[in-house]
Design a protein around this nucleic acid. Structure first.
Lengths: 146, 146
DNA sequence: CTGTAAATGCAAATCATTTGCATTTGACTT
DNA sequence: AAGTCAAATGCAAATGATTTGCATTTACAG
């Protein structure tokens, strides 16, 4: 199944109208494999000769986030909100302090700890967010020679 | 040592002028024991009959963050940036999905995992940010009866 | 194929944060 | 204690991301 039909099916399952723009936005997020800003999506669509208004992108992202087809995330030192396709697989990110590149890490060490926190703090944990900040391989190399 | 002299000393050590506003902002952040928005600080000062401009608060927070006397943090679903006093003790937060209240947790399970990530992903980890989302004790009680 | 509610485009509003500039102030010097 | 000056502040306006109101277009149920 290609992305177009995958996305079309997903929209139908959520009782959302299948519009050209919604399909395009979702396909871009799937291809990106990382969170994108509304603005970044806008420019990708423009490059692809697709005409769309930025406010429409914001509305689409809001709708898709409500239906949990996409996840809205915010990062430190990043003014804009970012949106990622929801693959339903729990993961975290590495954020390079030098080039700001975002990389996904699919393992997670926290399931046990969640229980501990729940008990000790009397806080019912529903989920968590974990990010590692540091330097990616490329930036580490560059730093050696500067 | 009271907070006023603690804060005055901290500012001097950072070669920053000791101004009434800087002292007030730092004392508010110490008392709060959790991150506050520029706006929240503004209203606390106003309630305390202290006249200050919001832009001054932003400039103070920026300066204090540069010197690492405060830490700037952002949370999901929170439009504003928040600032917390830097106690130099590594910690994380519990964020209640119902009342949005933020609670500190001082333990951390991630030191070992950081090394694992460093090796496997060839990413030099400098630090991390971890937040737990769920329901605080009060909101859990309220949910039972609603 | 048609009617209708939902989606979109466009312009303007909103809200957090930043900036330019005139004035005030902390702290060093004398 | 008064003089000096760069840094800090207040005020008004700018900026940039996001949201909203409203007129028009479109998806899709019947």
């Amino acid at each position: 199944m290609d992305n177009t039909s995958r996305v079309t099916t997903a929209l139908r399952e959520c009782h959302l109208k299948v519009t050209k723009h919604r399909v395009n936005v979702l396909k871009i997020l799937i291809r990106a494999q990382k969170p994108l800003s509304a603005d970044a999506i806008y420019h990708l669509l423009m490059t692809d000769r697709q005409s769309i208004d930025l406010s429409t992108i914001y509305r689409i992202l809001e709708t898709l986030a409500e239906k949990e087809l996409v996840i809205k995330v915010t990062f430190e030192n990043e003014v804009k909100n970012l949106y990622e396709y929801n693959h339903q697989i729990h993961h975290h990110f590495l954020i390079c302090l030098s080039c700001n590149q975002i990389t996904k890490v699919e393992s997670c060490p926290l399931r046990d700890y969640e229980e501990l926190v729940s008990e000790k703090m009397k806080f019912r944990v529903i989920g968590h967010k974990l990010e590692f900040y540091g330097y990616c391989e490329d930036c580490q190399k560059k730093q050696k020679y500067s």
